[in-house]
Design a protein around this nucleic acid. Sequence first.
RNA 1: GCGCCUGUAGCUCAGCUGGAUAGAGCAACGGACUUCUAAUCCGUAGGUUGCAGGUUCGAGUCCUGCCAGGCGCGCCA
Length: 554
Amino acid sequence: MKKTLTELISDSIRRCMDKGLLGSREIPPLVLESPKEKSHGDYATNIAMVMAAREGKPSQEVARIILSRLEDEDGVIERTEIGGPGFINFYLKEKVWYSILEEIERRGEDFGKGKIGEGRRVQVEFISANPTGPLHVGHGRGAAIGDALAKILEACNYRVFREYYINDVGSQMNILGESILLRYLHGLGKVVEFPDYCYQGDYIVEIAKKAISERGDEYLHYSKEEAIRSLASFGASNILRGIQGDLDQFGVHFDGWFSEKELYQEKKVKRAIETLKKRGLAYEKDGALWLKTSPYGDEKDRVLVKDNGETTYFASDVAYHKDKFDRGFEVLINIWGADHHGYVPRMKASLMAMGKDEAVLKIVLVQLVSLMRDGKPIAMSTRAGEFTTLRNVVEEVGRDAARFFFLMRRPDSQLDFDLELAKRQSNENPVYYVQYAHARICSIIREALNKGIVLPKFGDIDCHLLNLPEELDLLKLLTAYPEVIEASALSLEPHRIPFYLMELSSIFHSYYNRYRVISSELELTKARLFFVGTIKEVIKSALNILGISAPEKM
RNA sequence: GCGCCUGUAGCUCAGCUGGAUAGAGCAACGGACUUCUAAUCCGUAGGUUGCAGGUUCGAGUCCUGCCAGGCGCGCCA
């Protein structure tokens, strides 16, 4: 609807310019908003005020000129007015809102989907936690956001590929191997010291036990280096399986798992470095090889190959991102923990060094999660790490509540996650509030069927019976649903959808308490029954995008 | 020291990319179940948008400087 109206207005402005009524040549970006105040119409635009300065005329007059050439062929506009400092307010005819009901029926599960993606291939890389331990709540937030964004983009006609980058190379792998080896030796009765820098969690002990039961004392015959390397790889694959299990339980599935180790095995890091050298963007200094990132906005150049011949983590990342492009992705979205934000400029710079536009890489920074219980923070030490795993949280509060809580806030604001609140089945908990609205509608429909009422189609109802203020508000919200999805996709902000759901549910609950859907008046019953059915569909669709279930009974 | 993020009601947070009188939920108080699910609803109260300037018709939103909190500034990953 917004789109239709926007076109009407810009057509009008164009006509005014053609006839010389307006002096400007270009139409500034047209902003159409739904005013909070109902007395300001269904939609309002500030275009006259924006143009006023350029035109050298008072904004009210500009507004009058624009309105004078407005041609509403389809007859969607009830009336217009010029308000306040020069807003143009539009009041639409009721029939406009009813048309959404027909659209929801016609498009079914596709309602809400848009096409701004134009089939572009986008890769969403998220979580990408090192395989050195189980996922914690912070990863959970990244997982929920990454997965929801992927679904949002899919709904906007992007072709989405979800990928997990496995950081299975480097010093943390050595530490993993060493940690397991020490537990392994201890398990075989050797006396060992367990240093602070090693991974402390009990899962390391479990992996060591597993190594013992599967391989016996085999590793005792290896050299220390050999044993560490072998146990690191044994441990990493075990931990990775655990991570996959955790994600499965959380309902997150990847299209691809990309191993850093394979990046090296396939010589992709070396080749990426060669490419950069050829472009004259890598140079040697102090025995190391540097990438010129500073010309592209980074504060200094970065090392690709250390003076000892080893490549840096940055080098693999450069190669990894080059590989993403080589695989044909047009847009890259990385979900990162906010503690990596210092890394953003150099990553973007490296893309520019490869001749890419930095805008094709979008990095969503996700802030920390503070776990709480009844308003009190839970200590997050590595030592007491057990309770902060994603698995434990999901087991305690459930998948739906966990997802909703993770998605409720803007990614870049810190999140307080209260376990007791997430479990509580009461009005303090927004998850159930939304799901309950869905279940209630299902219940109404069940009741109607019990009474032998045939579920109506759009063609069977008289929409004009739906003229209560609550009904019109709900219709307007349903109309806005596709716009919410699109805005989430453009801003990469999934939290807009939980907020939309809470608002929709709120008006529905209020409507439910005040009026009856099933009554003795058959025509009214039919109209309302169809109407609440469309609300149910939209709630279900939105929950589905968030990866949350829409129960029919609660 | 430099950089990034955050600062909005007692608490947790929105605020549609600069719009009209800043909004929700929770907590508090008072009400509503013989009617499609009370995991709900209705009402009351709650604000110097961290502080000070600036930009303009108009600022929670943009620019500058402070203050507070978090994070980052490696030839670690």
